[in-house]
């Protein structure tokens, strides 16, 4: 029927067998991670009880249940812990299903995440996928601008002693300024010269993402061994040639590591960039709107949306890193 031999590689294992083998390999790495996640979720649920106690007891009172500190004004100055101890059954029972909890519980966030992604049309204003996409555009543009600027600065710093001494302190200083303080200024200044839309947000992203690339690439471009550099000198190779043939390829492991940090920083920049513009769409706008209207579940789901996007971006670069370095013989 077929030419496949019985003893063909992997023939006896089958698909599920191969998956099991792969899973067994991952098991060692996955176990500790899952344990930490489980502990965090348990802690989260536990924290939700005192955090939401004030609200829990108010809801109980409205239903006519008699409580020990009977009125809201008596309870106002009590801590969440004290309330939980005073009325443990009510505090626990009502902590995890409130409309506007101070701390939403994990399953509420998850439900909101599910509802705002899978259950919504992508074009809907309630779709988190749409908001993520809107934030992704300036993130990626800013990441590209920032990375290129970071590489260019590093090349300058490695080749010019003057730049090494003059640029690096400014690059470090630029990162000590809170981004929340400088973001509105960037938006206002660019707006006054007619630049609007994606670009101002991308520039804030670039502002955050160039720095790790500069630092990583300065180290990477200086990574070739002295004898490798001497060899280039014995061939009377130009600085450009040495850069292209030796320094850049050698710097690639450093580049990928700093790109991972840069892309996450770019996302933060794009989110922060949405705050001062009064944007109505995007993950940042979602966070802001959530906090205006006390929609904590919406805030948390937007936060998790951002975390998922960041994780996906970092993973994509990690994949590119593994493939490239393996092909270059650098891993």
């Amino acid at each position: 029927m077929t030419d496949t031999q019985i003893s063909a590689p992997g023939a006896g294992i089958g698909r599920s067998g191969r998956v099991a083998l792969a899973m067994r390999g991952m098991h060692h790495r996955l176990g500790p991670v899952l344990a930490v996640v489980a502990a965090l979720i348990a802690l989260w649920y536990l924290a939700a009880i005192p955090m939401n106690a004030q609200n829990s007891l108010m809801l109980a009172e409205r239903e006519g249940i008699v409580l020990t500190p009977a009125t809201a004004s008596e309870r106002r100055n009590m801590s969440g812990f004290a309330l939980t101890l005073a009325e443990p059954s009510q505090a626990v029972a009502r902590a995890f299903a409130q409309d506007r909890p101070r701390l939403p519980s994990p399953h509420q966030v998850l439900a909101e995440l599910w509802d705002s992604t899978v259950n919504q049309n992508v074009t809907s204003k309630r779709s988190l996928v749409r908001h993520a996409g809107i934030t992704l555009a300036p993130t990626l543009l800013g990441f590209v601008i920032g990375s290129l600027a970071g590489i260019a600065l590093a090349v300058g710093i490695v080749h010019s002693r003057l730049m090494d001494l003059s640029v690096m302190p400014w690059a470090i200083a630029s990162q000590t300024i809170p981004i929340l303080a400088i973001a509105p200024m960037i938006i206002v200044v660019l707006n006054s010269i007619g630049v609007q839309g994606v670009l101002p947000k991308a520039i804030i992203s670039a502002y955050l993402s160039f720095f790790p690339v500069t630092v990583g690439m300065v180290k990477g471009l200086r990574a070739p061994s002295p004898s490798d550099l001497d060899l280039m000198r014995t061939w009377n190779a130009s600085a450009t040639r040495t850069l292209l043939s030796l320094r850049l390829p050698t710097s690639l492991p450093y580049l990928f590591t700093s790109l991972k940090i840069a892309v996450a920083a770019a996302l933060v920049g794009a989110i922060v960039g949405e705050f001062p513009t009064g944007a109505v769409s995007g993950l940042g706008a979602r966070l802001l709107a959530g906090s205006y209207y006390g929609q904590t579940v919406q805030i948390w789901s937007a936060l998790f949306g951002a975390a998922i996007v960041a994780a996906a971006l970092v993973a994509a670069i990690g994949l590119a890193q593994r493939v490239t370095l393996k092909r270059m013989g650098l891993s």
Partner: peptide, 17 residues
């Protein structure tokens, strides 16, 4: 500059890529 010599170091210095 006239490339009058070839230099061999203790490390082979071959590029892995």
């Amino acid at each position: 500059k006239a490339r009058a010599y070839g230099y061999v170091f203790q490390a082979a210095g071959l590029y892995p890529w």
